[in-house]
């Protein structure tokens, strides 16, 4: 059996476009999802049951089901909610943002919980109001602690975007799959696709590790 990896250069442009879509999708969903995740985390740590229970249910639902089915589900439900058929990219953004919200809410919640009660005590002893304490003591520390994990979450998200191939969005995976099917060269094309994902995700994981180490030093944990 002979392989010809040279042939992938013929498909460099569509593959690059696919990659662009994957990255764009990741960036948008990470931004929207983190906001949702922060809101969910705050709702989950609220003393009010009315806020806490729906947030818990949402997170359990989205963490307890495969992302693929979330994609399908949003795909079929969104037209009903909106009353018109949105672009498949929009459906993809909605589904992956909801998923990212559930994932990052756990990140924010863990960060929130890792802030010791003595920080609250000290704030009270200094006479800081609830709002000042939240804004200047709790949230900055939570953001610091959450940052490396959020970056990991964004790697997870970047990988999960490959699933949108199943609902017809032309991301890297989908473009690669189409090319591979039409020319019957899965080994060359799929390996290339895998390597592209790896080349982007792997350095990112190293950055996360470095950042984590620096942060641990700074916070002396």
């Amino acid at each position: 059996m002979d392989f010809n990896f040279g042939l992938i250069w013929k498909f460099a442009v569509p593959l690059a476009q696919g990659l662009g879509t994957s990255i764009l999708l990741s960036l948008i969903c990470m931004a929207l999802g983190s906001l949702l995740g922060l809101a969910l985390a705050l709702a989950r740590s609220s003393p009010s049951r009315l806020l806490r229970l729906p947030a818990v249910a949402f997170v359990e639902l989205f963490r307890g089901t495969p992302v693929l089915i979330q994609l399908f589900w949003v795909f079929f439900c969104l037209p009903l909610v909106l009353g018109f058929e949105p672009a498949s990219f929009t459906s993809g953004v909605v589904a992956l943002s909801l998923f990212t919200g559930a994932v990052t809410s756990e990140t924010f919640r863990a960060a929130l919980r890792s802030i010791g009660s003595e920080q609250r005590d000290a704030s009270v002893a200094l006479g800081l109001s609830r709002w000042t304490r939240m804004r200047y003591v709790i949230l900055p520390q939570m953001a610091l602690r959450a940052t490396p994990v959020l970056l990991s979450n964004s790697i997870t998200l970047f990988k999960e975007t490959a699933l949108v191939a199943a609902v017809g969005i032309s991301d890297l995976m989908s473009v690669g799959e189409n090319i591979s099917n039409s020319i019957g060269r899965p080994v060359e094309i799929l390996t290339t696709v895998a390597v592209v994902y790896f080349v982007i995700a792997f350095p990112f994981t190293r950055i996360v590790t470095l950042l984590e180490k620096r942060l641990l030093r700074k916070l002396a944990l």
Partner: peptide
């Protein structure tokens, strides 16, 4: 560092 879907297809 690669998507599950890519791994499975591969």
């Amino acid at each position: 560092c690669t998507p599950f879907l890519v791994q499975i297809f591969w």
